[in-house]
């Protein structure tokens, strides 16, 4: 029983990291209807910039601030040079644009910082601590705490600020938002900056876990089953979906894995998502269209 609990908690905690990446997608999808394929490249760029600065003896806080600044600049540039010229184009065009964007950002980070693998130490031990008879990774707890704080900050932003209200209005009905005088480009800039910040945080956490290297941009693929499960347009869905995928993955590895000779953790999430698609195509929390009949 303790063992089951330990696997479950470990899975949930690693699921938080999936949620974090998924939230980056949801923010942009909700407001502009684009599945931002460049999220992974942004995440990689943030982690790589940060780690390279730290290796050049820049103090931790300054490196964080500089990286944050870079993510803001990237957000502004994407809105200005990619989204604005493509406004009112079909979603597939925008998706292709973000696909191209991801290569540009990856290439730029390689040009800027080189292609070596870096270790990233956030100063948190990965040693397990014991609580109530089960072992929990300290790092996982820390990551979960950061992700939780991030989500709380986003929720407060959306509920309490004028920009947040504008964001939700745009997410609900773009044409109506336009007609009441909401400046869509400003909302998009805000959203891309927010997504950049999310990419920074998840980039650091994932980078510390896996090492900062180019395959880091592939962690976004893990966000896809999370989004299928939770719904592409729900922040709450991204959180719950991440937790579910994290837990299911670990449990499957331990209990179903031996039947296949192990190693199913890598693909179980995708199979689960596929099965889920058949039952609930809009996800657990996907927007049920409020409609009068």
């Amino acid at each position: 029983m303790d063992f089951l609990l330990e696997v479950l908690v470990g899975g949930l905690l690693s699921g938080v990291m999936y949620s974090l990446v998924a939230i980056g997608f949801v923010l942009i999808y909700k407001t502009s209807g684009v599945l931002n394929f460049a999220q992974g490249a942004q995440l990689l760029f943030a982690a790589l910039t940060f780690v390279s600065l730290v290796e050049r003896e820049v103090p931790f806080v300054a490196a964080l601030a500089i990286t944050l600044g870079a993510m803001v600049v990237i957000g502004l540039a994407i809105e200005r040079f990619v989204l604005r010229p493509l406004v009112n184009q079909p979603p597939i065009t925008l998706f292709m644009a973000t696909l191209g964007l991801s290569y540009v950002i990856e290439g730029a980070s390689q040009l800027l910082w080189g292609a070596q693998v870096h270790g990233l130490d956030l100063g948190i031990d990965d040693a397990p601590i014991e609580a109530a008879g089960i072992f929990i990774s300290q790092f996982d707890l820390f990551a979960a705490g950061i992700a939780g704080a991030m989500v709380l900050a986003l929720v407060l932003f959306f509920r309490k600020t004028r920009t947040g209200l504008a964001f939700r209005a745009v997410a609900d009905d773009q044409v109506a938002a336009l007609s009441v005088g909401i400046r869509l480009p400003r909302v998009w800039v805000a959203v891309w900056i927010a997504a950049g910040v999310v990419a920074l945080v998840s980039g650091l956490l994932w980078g510390a876990r896996l090492g900062v290297q180019f395959s880091l941009s592939l962690v976004v693929l893990k966000a896809l089953p999370v989004l299928v499960l939770g719904g592409f347009d729900s922040v709450a869905g991204a959180i719950v979906g991440g937790l579910l995928i994290g837990a299911a993955e670990k449990l499957a590895e331990v209990y179903i894995g031996p039947l296949f000779g192990g190693g199913i953790e890598g693909w179980f999430a995708y199979v689960a998502a596929l099965a889920f698609l058949l039952v609930r195509p809009s996800g657990l929390f996907g927007q049920k269209l409020v409609e009068r009949v």
Binding site: D172, D173, A176
Partner: peptide
Amino acid sequence: LEGRHCFPQL
């Protein structure tokens, strides 16, 4: 706008 276009989730 035609068809009202209120923000349904707000």
